[in-house]
Structures are given as C-alpha cells and as structure tokens.
Amino acid sequence: MTTFVLIPGAGGQASFWRRLVPELRSRGHRAIAVDLPAGDDSAGLDAYADAVVRSVDIAGPVTLVAQSLGGMIAPLVCDRLDVEQIILVNAMTPSPGETGADWWATTGQAEAARAYAEQQGRDLASLDDPWETFFHDADAQLLAEAKAGPGQVQSGRPMQDPWPLAAWPSVPTRFLAARDDRLFPLDFQRRVVAERLGLEVEVTPGGHLSSLTQPVAMAELLTEGGPRGDGIEEHSVTADEVAPETKGVTAELLGTVDLGPELDGMEGRRLRLRRFTFEPGAVFGPVHDHKGRPGIVYILQGTITDHRNGVATDYGPGLGWPEDRNTVHWLENKGTVPAVEVSVDIIQEQARPQ
C-alpha cells in the first residue's frame, strides 16, 4: 500500500483531487489531498510547503503527487517527510533561484502554447479562455460542476519567491505529461523536463487537469507504473482473460454514405458513422475482429479501455485508435461516468450494423 500525498496546482484546493482519491482508495492505497493557502497574499513557498507537511498526519513513507504549480512545492518537503517518490503531473519544474513568475518566460511557455493552438487549428482567442484551456476534455457532468462552482483564487505571492533549493532532491522522480495539455503542451514539457531533470516524460490521456478529467487512467498510472510507447496508458492483463458479453452499451447509427458513386472500386461499400454510449461498467464484447470493416474510433467523453494482445489501454477524450484487419479486441468502461465514442468504418453493402 502506498500513501499518496496529493499537492494541487493553482487555486490550491484539495477538492481538485475529488475524483482521483476514491480511485486510489479503491485500489487499496491511502490518499491525502492537500489544501494550500492560495488565497493568502502573505503566503510564500515556505507557507505552501508547511501546509503540505501539516496535512500528513501518519508516519511512514509517502509518494508526493504534484500538479502544475505543485511542482515547485513538492521538492521543498523532501527533507521534512519520508518521501520515497515524487510524481509530477503536468507540472512546473523550477531551476535554482528561479521565481515562478520568471519560469513562464524562461521556458517559453507562451510561445509553446500558441504554437500548439496553431497546430491544432484552434482560434488563438481560445488561449485566454479557461474553459477551452483547462476543461476541453471534461465530461458534461464535470463541466457543469466547474461552471456552477465558486471559481478559484490564486495569490501571486508564491510566484515571487526564488526557488530555494540548490538542486532537485535525490528522490526517485517520474513526470506524467498529458497528451493534449493546452497550457503546457507535450512537446514543450518533453524539452523542459529533459533539460531540467534529465527525464523522459510518460504520456497520459487528457489535458492539463488530467487527474480530474481522467481519474481512472491516472489512478492506474500512479499505482501500476507508467505507460508504454508514446502516449496512451497501457497495463498488462492475463493471457487467459475472457471478455464478457456485451452489456450497458447503446449504439446509434448517425448516417452512411454509399462509396460506390464516389470512389472507383468501392462499389457495394458504405462509409458508416455511429455513436456508442458506454454506461459505467459497460462491456462491448466478446472478443471480435475488424476484418473487412476498417475504421477509426474517437472518444468524446469519459474513458474507454481497449483490451487487445494481452494489453489493456485507457483512452480519454480527444484520443482514439484505428481498427483494421489486425485488430482483435474488446472494450469496457471501468469509470464512474458514461463514456461516449464515435466510430467511422467502411462496411460491405449487405453488412448489418453491429
């Protein structure tokens, strides 16, 4: 069992971790969510570090999980707690003597965020829209909760303090970077983390608030190690795993296009668009293939776990996968909210929707 001490980013609210904490506890771990003095204009980095230490009311080793601004704070408590590991999540990585206010310009964050928006074809005005920056991968329920909430308050005081350590602590450190982080884009984090910590980032689903928007995938990453390959969380499953039958899945046919008149050699084939809704605990099984009906899947909401070749992979909003003659898999929603995907595939004229 691991004791995770969860340090939030700007806004400093322990409630940021409200979706991740139950996922960690359900896996048999302790989770301590920290409140930081974000609204206190007299509180600098030392006061933030004090708040973390006061939150830990048990003896023994802990793993620090630091979100965004929390990356400046976690190293400051390593000589005051029994820290066995630091896990940085979409975090700031300071250099000795650098202030948080200077970090943005020193690292080139603004230029990186703008370049990523241009790469995606997004309106550059969206860079100033917090809902587009932070909640673009949130499900409808979370987005409604956030918009109905009181908003966050963050004093600029801790950003004025030079980071006081001479070097990063000699503590094993991992860095989890979200694939679609619009504030700290993935390529930006790869560069900064390599330069400052000498680490390769582990790529996760979601955006900047991935621990809030993708709690199932993040809990798996935190408790079972990092992802393999470039970008989607994967974890091993047993070779003799048997996929259950389909349950809790609703399929809606949105439209088809007869490809025969459109493309030479495509007579008798149609392009099909469907939307699938997976209720919590839903399964799309049993194991099936896609021979003769290649396609692409895109996740709109929630997290869907794809089981294939002995590996289970979690996909969140904004992510997806191709399906071709080599695809043999089954799907499930292990989360607590409905998951929604859209599927586009090519089918034979006589084929029936599945």
Rank of each mutant, 00 (worst) to 15 (best):
I87C: 11
A148S: 14
V201D: 03
R272I: 09
V340Q: 09
L76R: 06
L319K: 10
L259C: 07
E234S: 15
S55D: 12
G12T: 04
G97M: 10
E220Q: 12
L186A: 03
S95G: 02
Y48H: 14
R18K: 12
L263D: 00
Q154I: 03
D264M: 05
W104F: 14
S42N: 08
V342T: 11
R308V: 07
P338H: 02
V342L: 05
A47G: 10
P244S: 11
F4I: 00
R25A: 03
D57Y: 03
V193Q: 05
L127T: 07
A14L: 04
V237P: 06
V311W: 02
A115F: 07
M72E: 06
R293V: 08
H208P: 00
R54N: 13
P317R: 06
L6C: 10
L81F: 03
A219F: 02
R19Y: 12
N326W: 11
E200T: 11
P96S: 08
G225F: 13
A167L: 07
A351Y: 01
F276P: 02
G316S: 09
R275T: 09
D289H: 08
G39T: 09
H288R: 12
Q85F: 02
W321V: 00
W131M: 13
L254V: 05
T303D: 14
F276E: 09
E195Q: 14
D230A: 12
G9C: 11
L143S: 13
E349F: 08
G9M: 09
L88S: 00
D161K: 01
G295S: 10
A219N: 05
G100D: 08
Y298W: 12
Q141K: 11
L300D: 10
Q119D: 14
P169A: 03
Q354C: 03
R54D: 15
G206N: 05
G71H: 00
G335Q: 06
N333M: 10
M266G: 07
E241Q: 13
D35H: 15
A59W: 00
V77K: 04
W17F: 15
G207K: 14
G295Q: 09
A117S: 09
T133Y: 02
L259S: 02
F278R: 02
P261F: 08
Q189L: 15
G11C: 11
Q350C: 10
V153D: 04
Q109D: 02
P22R: 07
D264Y: 09
R270G: 03
V311N: 01
H290F: 09
H136Y: 01
M266S: 13
M218E: 06
K334Q: 14
A66K: 01
